[in-house]
Design a protein around this nucleic acid. Structure first.
Lengths: 230, 230
DNA sequence: CGGTGACTTGACTACTCTCAATTTCGGTGG
DNA sequence: CCACCGAAATTGAGAGTAGTCAAGTCACCG
């Protein structure tokens, strides 16, 4: 299926998205130039598989539009999401200096465009360009602390607490009330929080008493402070 | 309490331990030399706190002997282990290019000696020495895949499965039976697996039927293959 | 307006946590 | 060498949380 997607050099809109990602923004002009030179843009439809666990690791990715799921399969076919990557987020850094294979399945959660960088080329770039090496380090470090939070939250918090925590991180700071539009399907959010979709549903309804209203993807939060108490 | 522990330059035994860690072993002589020059050896007793979540991040660590716990506290005082670090393992890499504070509590699980590296000095070393930068990248990448496994396992596996998985990783490869000596207390293993001590106990007793015998810290595994089926 | 897929709700089950009571283990001192 | 102490580990009972399955409802899109 890979071959069926157009592979293109980046157009200017895509370059802008790439340059706008928080971590790449720290790159200087020349480093950014080098990165875009080895980038290829690829398009996928919902549910397309970008790679399987165990496949030889070829690419480092940056999501341009849409959301991508990294997940693991158990022997009995259940899925566990490890990370959900949105626009501007990268994954696959850890493969640069590590094992020869992907450690997880990669799937498009919806229509997505991604920028793709051959690991071998990127490895060479990182060796030559200190800025790029530093960029990779920073994004790995960021992923590391994120996923450490994830482990701690999984182990300490109940479903409503995890949801409340997610909603709070989506709120603008210092607001007493807020309205949020979920950027993806609820089933994807459920996976991100380590829950079955039904459990997410029940978590939402248990947050009603804390002044949280749900209408489709639109979430209304009356009292941000009350949410913090959960 | 920090000030009560002797701070010493490394002796040769400690240098050997440090040089023997899998990742540092990849360092060349000069790089290793630079690392030992900025290292300080510190000693802690069981339950000593090396740092608290939120403390300004000063050091990168390498455990020389004993085990160290990285954990998070919930508001109601429950603890969740994020990682258990044994001899030769490092932690704190992610703070090199990131936030100004520790993201977790650090505690000695028993009597430990650690080598400590000031982040600012190490940052400078990494900037100057490509080998050291690469060493840091590799260990971050290794931690990243480890903790991704941890998230997936937490979400996919039951307590007996997690325990079986741990025992299997402690077995020598390709053996049909094995005897393992746990390197630390069971309560620490419980935390590592994201379980309450009681749950670990029950997991052990549920593995009896798979031919696992427990005598103190000594674990006997009759049939490694049977354990894999769990 | 109809239909498909996403979401919600309910009933039930499985798993793990908590609390409390023993038992075992490991080390210390007599 | 043995007795004893305290910490660690085990076991039991009970409660809470989330997963599964099934049925029903809602939302979005043609």
């Amino acid at each position: 299926m890979d071959e069926m997607n157009k592979r293109l050099k980046m157009n200017s809109r895509e370059k802008n998205i790439l340059a706008g990602t928080p971590l790449m923004a720290a790159l200087g002009k020349p480093a950014l130039q080098h990165m875009t030179e080895i980038a290829t843009v690829v398009h996928f439809e919902a549910r397309d598989i970008l790679a399987r666990e165990g496949d030889p690791a070829e690419y480092f990715y940056c999501v341009l539009t849409g959301y991508v799921r990294l997940f693991r399969l158990s022997r009995d076919g259940r899925e566990a999401d490890i990370r959900i990557c949105g626009p501007g987020e990268t994954f696959g850094e850890c493969l640069l200096y590590l094992g020869p294979a992907y450690r997880y399945h990669i799937q498009a959660a919806e229509t997505v465009t991604v920028a793709r960088f051959e690991l071998s080329k990127l490895r060479k770039l990182a060796d030559e360009d200190r800025d790029i090496a530093r960029f990779i380090m920073q994004s790995m470090a960021a992923h590391l602390v994120n996923i450490m939070d994830c482990v701690a939250n999984d182990r300490l918090q109940t479903a409503p607490q995890r949801l409340a925590h997610y909603l709070l991180t989506s709120c603008p700071q210092n607001s007493t009330s807020a309205s949020i539009r979920l950027p993806f399907q609820k089933s994807l959010l459920a996976g991100k929080l380590g829950l079955a979709p039904e459990a997410l549903s029940r978590a939402f309804s248990s947050l009603k008493r804390a002044g949280v209203t749900v209408r489709g993807r639109l979430i209304l939060i009356n009292d941000v402070g009350a949410l913090r108490q959960i």
